[in-house]
Amino acid sequence: MSKRFLFDGRPVVFEDGQTILQAARAAGHYIPHLCWHPDFPPHGSCKLCIVKVAGRHVSSCAMPAKEGMEVESNTPEINGERRALLQMLFVEGNHFCPSCEKSGNCQLQALAYDLEMTGERFAHFFPERPVDSSHPDVLLDFNRCIFCELCVRASRDVDGKNVFALTNRGINKHLVVNAESGRLGDTDLAADDLAANICPVGVILKKRVGFATPIGERTYDVKPIHIVAMEDGK
């Protein structure tokens, strides 16, 4: 008899070693996430994937599924908290969607749509985050960083280059590149590295691409993220 748990009241079958998020996903249930990626071990920083198990909040990307657990995910309470986490991410950086090339294909924006984040609650930080255009093929706009570390992990674990890392801490934490000059152009990042192509938001952008897809035809113009994410594993 296979093991199962209840996800928003519906039974989900799982195998030992699967996390709640993995098992729910395999059963066709979407749990919002930003730092989680199917090709990488769980990271657990964005906290969008929080769910409630036996009255306690846990990160579903990291919590192993257990027989008989009752998981609440798509509830007004949890979605309200997720919306607030998004609002935190929006005020912490400088997210100006109309001028962002990633708009329409951005996971942060798409999740905000899906979770009906129409407006803001907190005051903006308006941090100083200069852009880095020193690389011939890739632009870095730190204003939009959500610290998911996917570029860090991709560069370290897949590309074997360690181009990106985080430094400082707390609200002053920020992305740095592997060069004494601090310039991306002085690293060995190549445009086809996974790290250059994995950013879920608009920090790492290819130059000379621009607003390639017309408004109305971009990924999340067509379908919401809870459908897209289940289709292509992003």
Binding site: C97, P98, C100, S103, G104, Q109, A112, Y113, D114, E116, T118, I215, D221, P224
Partner: peptide, 9 residues
């Protein structure tokens, strides 16, 4: 707002 009406750009 319905999904198609939600956009930031």
């Amino acid at each position: 707002l319905s999904y198609p009406m939600m956009h930031f750009d």
